[in-house]
Design a protein around this nucleic acid. Sequence first.
DNA 1: TAGATTGTTAATCGATTAACAATC
DNA 2: TAGATTGTTAATCGATTAACAATC
Lengths: 232, 232
Amino acid sequence: MTARTSAETARDIPEATVARLPVYLRALTGLSEAGTRTCSSEDLATAAGVNSAKLRKDLSYLGSYGTRGVGYDVEYLRYQIAREIGVTQDWPVVIVGIGNLGHALANFSGFRSRGFRVVALLDADPSRHAEQVAGIDVRPFDDLDAIVREHAVAIGVISTPAHAAQDVADAMVAAGIRSILNFAPTVLAVPEGVDVRKVDLSIELQILAYHESRKALGDQPEPGRQEQEVRS
Amino acid sequence: MTARTSAETARDIPEATVARLPVYLRALTGLSEAGTRTCSSEDLATAAGVNSAKLRKDLSYLGSYGTRGVGYDVEYLRYQIAREIGVTQDWPVVIVGIGNLGHALANFSGFRSRGFRVVALLDADPSRHAEQVAGIDVRPFDDLDAIVREHAVAIGVISTPAHAAQDVADAMVAAGIRSILNFAPTVLAVPEGVDVRKVDLSIELQILAYHESRKALGDQPEPGRQEQEVRS
DNA sequence: TAGATTGTTAATCGATTAACAATC
DNA sequence: TAGATTGTTAATCGATTAACAATC
């Protein structure tokens, strides 16, 4: 059933915890840049916008990286989380669809510092192939296979219109990509073993609209809300 | 404790269900545009990328809008979900921060059809105030108060750099906005009663990287995965 | 009536939280 | 030793899922 060997330390980290590790990593980077050497679970939880019990429970899945009575060494914990996520080295990424959003993504400066490297920008429209975006040539979509092979690309970003997204996903999967970040507002069908994460502006806004509608009714804070109401 | 009156039908819809209603709404729009008049929970679930038991459970929180032995009337269910979410009318939205991402958001065509209307684009940089983006004037950030009042804006979108985001959020809250969609890679502190949703490219990529790392180890599909592995 | 499909129940699973023993 | 803070336990809460009675 599984290919895991007992030599792998791979504890089973809950999905909800996995989704928060990057938040902790960013908070630690912030603390580090502010010159903080040591922090308590309470400090880090505040910086990350969660409660400290949840933070400690999350960290406990990685191991025991704190010191009772003292707290966590910021640099050490940061490295351990980066290692756990797998961003101690850079992941090569391709972006397909260089419209407005693709431009914004290509110009996003956080890629490099957070474990990613954009190795190619692809677009099906030949009129874009003259362009350079963020210092990177825009290349024909048909080059996908060659690029994935050349750079061992494992992660693909789709920023095409919705109608093109499934074809792009199919081509990515055929080229060997098994992790896809989809900005196109459409449900992608992918084979087993391929991960798709979706970022969808309309859906986020509609979730806000739902809660906003209820607020308007009572026109005062809901009962039982937390201080820091960040959902993600 | 709560301001709800018994006249309100407001059943308590679980947050996980709320987050899927927009997905169902979009799937129904797709079915409708394809000319489908009636669909089963199985059909709709497939279109939305979830399993049918979950779909039926979700819909049961809204009411009984299907017909046993027959299925759902696409238009009718679509309207009911739109009403539940609160997007039968348009919500006025402001976007603050008109860089690459702000441009992309302003040009996003799905706003109008999905229940939103961009009433203003704001930027602190005076050199941008000459510009028009997507046919809308870019205005000084200081106009926020007046614009929120004039258009009864309830939802704000932040697409500034991280260092500016908290100030923007504070100003939005002060102006009366109580729902914020934050694209800046930072945790926002907001008072009780204000909803923040976060969209974060690096975090999404890092979650993919985590799973990609594990795949590389075994180099074959994980056990116990679903057919359609869409996480959101 | 027979077949199809919903809406609901109940079991299971996973996530959150408070409390506190362990320990620096 | 006294104070501080972690890592873990156990209780609770919320979400998912399969199964099926209700009913078109």
